[in-house]
Design a protein around this nucleic acid. Structure first.
Length: 152
DNA sequence: GCCAACGTTGGC
DNA sequence: GCCAACGTTGGC
């Protein structure tokens, strides 16, 4: 079992969307980066735990935890012409992108801000804080996981 | 809204 | 397969 950090813009999908529907799986769709996709497709497994990270917003940081309930399958949004994630170059025969399903685990009592994560020497190796890294799906080691949550 | 950094595309 | 141009990400 592995741990992950997924980025999301809270305007699109926030930890509150999870918290408001604790029994409903949320389709994690719209990953359109090959490196992130490869991890989603090849490594993310059922029951893995995921830090939900809010980006491009006022309060940037880790907001809560979710759990994988369904591993990678063809992302339906790539075939949906009405979706912003529609990809004309993908076909049902050879889907290019994958989605996973997540369910709510918890909302952190207080969001763990990015600057705290940045200033923790023990988290230097986290792709999130590495210069130029734009991965929206990244692995988190057990030690990093603990350190992040300890900041809260 | 700026912009640095990275990713993708497409002509050659 | 190089690389310039363009697009995207995401913190600030």
């Amino acid at each position: 079992m592995a741990n992950w950090l997924f980025k999301t813009e809270p305007d699109e999908c926030s930890i509150d969307d999870f918290a408001n529907a604790p029994d409903t799986p949320i389709v994690w769709e719209g990953v359109r980066n090959y490196q992130a996709r490869n991890m989603l497709r090849d490594q993310v497994q059922k029951d893995d735990l995921v830090l939900i990270y809010h980006s491009s917003c006022k309060l940037i940081g880790v907001a809560g935890i979710a759990r994988v309930v369904r591993p990678a399958y063809a992302d339906p949004s790539q075939f949906n012409t009405a979706s912003v994630y529609f990809d004309a170059k993908s076909s049902p025969d050879a889907p290019r992108w994958v989605a996973v399903d997540l369910v709510f685990v918890e909302k952190l009592p207080a969001l763990i801000p990015l600057d705290k994560i940045k200033s923790s020497a023990k988290l230097n190796g986290l792709p999130l804080v590495q210069k130029g890294s734009r991965l929206s799906v990244m692995p988190v080691t057990a030690a990093q996981w603990q350190h992040i949550l300890q900041l809260g």
